[in-house]
């Protein structure tokens, strides 16, 4: 059977392989190479060694964006997961209207980042106007604006995953714990949370990478204002590429660092939470 399938390689695997090469493989390899070059388009690249990388660390906007992104990611991961889990717990108690609430909470997730950004800009600026401020008054406003926006967008998605996890817990387990005299706090800590650990793994992974890679919402909500102070990493890289001529190489080097950071975080996080999962 293997042999006869193998003959059909051009039909089965080739289209994806070609597209994958164009859409990912070649740009990725070229990207790594170009991070060691000075260039304005791809054809005039000149090898300059690691000077692009050295330049990054003298760029204050990048260092600022790095800390800003790290802080933003931590705050949004914690808030989104705690709130989503709490809502999921309450919505699995069988109260009336559960389906309607689930539908409503999930909806913002389908709306794109650009549209979301301008929607929240209107609301937040409207509220801040009472205090004679706007979102771009200082980076703190932009920060909390983004956090609120992300919570609104992602809680529904994570809630759906948590609900599925909670519903998978066998009822006998909770019953047994109750008969043994466990309080609801103990049940939560010793039964529910260990049992939904796979959901926690995937939700923290998703919120972590989403937060770290956030771009559209940042662009639409504050566009980095005031003076690049509310710029997340992805937007900082974009602005280095397309906003400063002669800095394309540095932009590419930043992108490589960005990629390495995302990869490290993803791997560490997967390791850490996978260890805590219970075998069923």
């Amino acid at each position: 059977m293997q042999k006869s399938i193998k003959k059909y390689f051009p039909i089965f695997a080739l289209p994806t392989l070609v597209a994958f090469t164009i859409g990912f493989l070649v740009p990725f390899i070229m990207g790594i190479y170009l991070s060691f070059c000075k260039f304005t388009t791809v054809t005039d690249a000149k090898f300059v060694g690691i000077s692009n990388y050295l330049k990054i660390f003298t760029d204050k906007t990048f260092i600022h964006a790095l800390w800003y992104t790290a802080l933003f990611t931590i705050v949004s991961v914690v808030l989104i997961n705690v709130l989503a889990f709490a809502i999921a717990m309450l919505l699995t108690k069988g109260i009336s209207g559960t389906n309607v609430f689930r539908t409503v909470f999930f909806m913002p997730n389908l709306i794109g980042g650009i549209v979301l950004g301008y929607t929240w800009q209107l609301l937040l600026n409207g509220i801040l106007a009472h205090f004679q401020k706007t979102l771009t008054y200082s980076s703190t406003y932009g920060f909390w604006g983004l956090v609120i926006l992300m919570c609104w967008q992602q809680i529904g998605y994570m809630m759906i995953i948590y609900i599925a996890g909670i519903q998978n817990i066998p009822g006998e387990l909770i019953e047994a714990a109750k008969i043994d005299g466990a309080t609801s706090g103990q049940i939560l800590k010793n039964v529910t949370i260990p049992m939904v650990m796979p959901s926690i793994t995937i939700c923290t992974f998703l919120t972590l990478t989403n937060g770290f890679k956030l771009f559209d919402q940042n662009l639409a909500l504050t566009n980095g204002e005031p003076s690049n102070m509310s710029e997340l990493l992805a937007l900082n890289i974009f602005n280095t590429f397309y906003g400063r001529t002669g800095w394309e190489g540095v932009g590419q080097a930043k992108a490589v660092i960005f990629f390495i950071l995302v990869a490290i975080i993803a791997v560490i996080q997967m390791r850490l939470t996978r260890d805590k999962e219970v075998q069923q």
Binding site: I22, F24, F28, M30, L34, V42, I237, F241, A255, F259
Partner: peptide
């Protein structure tokens, strides 16, 4: 190899390839 590359590509952020991808797509008239 293909399977491993697919897994790998999932963690690569778009910013990593955006510049080269846009230039390549332009060259290929995509």
């Amino acid at each position: 190899g293909m399977y491993c590359l697919c897994l790998f590509s999932m963690i690569v952020p778009f910013q990593m390839v955006m510049f080269t991808l846009s230039k390549l797509a332009n060259m290929l008239h995509l």
